[in-house]
Write a protein that binds this DNA or RNA. Structure first.
Lengths: 210, 210, 210, 210
DNA sequence: TATGAATGAGGCTTCATTCAT
DNA sequence: GATGAATGAAGCCTCATTCAT
């Protein structure tokens, strides 16, 4: 089956981890869905945990890259840059919805793997975002703010739609897997950037002098 | 051991579900931590799932009540009312941090229990919040908005700090279990209500005529 | 099945460890032979290793006791005492042939359990036997000898018939499970005590003066 | 890698079988230690059992040869001949300590391979040793004795030091891998031959007439 | 000749639950 | 009402081996 088998395993794993959780998914379930011998999973990924680790890494490589791409715009204004980053993350998560949900859930569990992810990728994420926040404050684009609290809010806004898709569709009747959703929701986040982060006093000043 | 035993089980279960996840926690782990016979858990709660259900119900009873308490202020302005609701939820979650984290995670898993919770408590939550949103729009306190998208954002803001406490402390160096945090963070949410929900045109109008 | 089940497991385990070795025996084999649920083995003995440990302990408790019983005769002469000890060990091993063979084999494998057994029971055995040897030398019953080398020989003589019963019956045509064998073989060991350990010079001296 | 690889496998296998037992050693362990592809083992030796068989054969070829070499001295006296045989075996085992221990253990397990070894090499061993014993009895060098019982004892004396080297060093503080040990221990066996096998009446007679 | 991929069988252990007491 | 014994199912992983290359 070759590389195909490995890919099939990952795909099946993401789908099952997504709906049943990591601990709620057995290696046999994955193997059956991927039409693969259960022993192959240990063979390819060392262990079930190794498979999870693989998923984590795959997700966060792309995730951090999303941020880095947007970061290059920093000199065109902190707000613009942050918007681009948010947009990139939004579409990245939109395009990897199952993986995203799974990650957002599993990262909330105390474990060795999670600790490693936090001390690498999430540290990097915080570093980048702080940089943008601090630049914005320095240029007075943003009001004086605690950047960590802002990061928290931004992450909350970007995560919620993907954490519980079932809730989205069945309770809110918002369909996160339609392109329309992503487009609209990212505009909401722009509102948050403009309305919460940006320096309102300047706004008012400009309005007043007009 | 009587009712004491039952309470001890719930307490232990919340702590373990919180750190290891529901599927990552065994009935024996819980029994050991609660210093109780494992058979007691099936005895009291019918099954391990019954215990989870008990936790869900306990959480959402208090959660919905938090909303209902704030809702009574609706006639004093939608923004004020929403702020009160947000504040209530914030402190409720703050006072039940372990339980909150566990619920936020487990509700993202597809299961019968979750479906039932969604069709009751979360439906009710949506109903209440929509009411506030719509009132705010009608009175022109809020700009014209899609209430579901606002609910989504509000929930995102209120959830994130509790979903991953490890991340909070180790990466952001924000300590969610200190009272200071809750106080500060709720003010951030007020900013969101003021800056994103409220009718900016009115703002500008008032500023202009001043 | 009660205590019966535990005993049945031990009995089956000894038989299978004896013929197939510890690592060559599966928990399922044991359970099947004992007509017991496989999970019971972990239940009773914690793990497969725990079952082995149980066998080790059971054997060595009786083994050391065999020695201690004979040791009480030390004041009636070292040779007599040693003969009694050898006789006790001989019959103990004869009455627990399967267990004995299994132990003699498994104790030759490097493992944590074995290390523990050595540092307790076998240390005690050495202590007792050294005591007898040294007394014999002091009273000039025994020739001057290195007691550790003598212990080695004695243990070799006492072990060999039980280590490989298949060899005994099929090659040497000696049936170690017949009472006759034990009786005859213990006399051979007496010869060793008399002929190798005891002070031949004294023998010769007495002969000379006759 | 050629024949080199085959030799490396055997060497690694002996070391691992020695310390962990045959069933406690996996083909992958051996391959890793030998720095060889696991499939090579099946390739060279047909199967894991084939590798064991190879070890058995290698050991017993040398073992029987040790006996045969000593046997040529039969006409210079049974006692002398037996001493030479014992000495040869002693040094052979001393020079192949790991292999010896492994063989002594594995031969105590019931299996097809062992049965075959017994019906060839061990039969031959018994034949040779019986021949010496019977000659000694005939020439009245040895007292009247049951040769099988004597073989048993001799094998016990020769085996014990090698069966459990860990016990030797840690409990008895005798180091079997030092040359000094082999030299000293073989003299002990000579004592056994002189003191237990040889015709004491003749001894006494000669003493008396002196 | 030599090997990396792949596999089915079976390894031990843990699971949630039941039931007699 | 509460529990210790017992269980069948299922957990993950390792095994020796095979096969195409």
């Amino acid at each position: 089956m070759g590389e195909n088998g490995k890919a099939a395993i990952v795909k099946a794993a993401i789908a099952l981890f997504n709906s049943n959780g990591f601990d709620g998914t057995s290696i046999r379930d994955i193997a059956k869905k991927a039409k693969v011998n259960p022993a192959n999973i240990s063979y390819y990924f060392e262990s079930k945990n190794g498979l999870l680790e693989h998923c984590f890494t795959a997700f966060f490589e792309g995730y951090v890259e999303s941020i880095e791409k947007g970061l290059s715009l920093l000199d065109q204004g902190a707000a613009n840059c942050l918007k681009k980053i948010a947009e990139n993350i939004m579409y990245y998560q939109y395009e990897n919805m199952q993986l995203t949900r799974m990650i957002l859930r599993e990262i909330s569990i105390d474990s060795q793997i999670v600790r490693e992810i936090m001390s690498t990728y999430l540290m990097k994420e915080r570093f980048y975002l702080s940089k943008v926040m601090e630049r914005g404050v320095k240029t007075r684009e943003f009001r004086t703010l605690a950047s960590n609290y802002m990061i928290l809010q931004l992450k909350g806004l970007l995560s919620m739609p993907f954490l519980n898709t079932q809730y989205m569709t069945e309770v809110l009747h918002v369909l996160p897997n339609e392109k329309y959703f992503a487009e609209k929701y990212i505009r909401e986040i722009f509102h948050w950037i403009d309305g919460v982060l940006c320096n309102r006093e300047i706004d008012r000043f400009y309005l007043a002098v007009k």
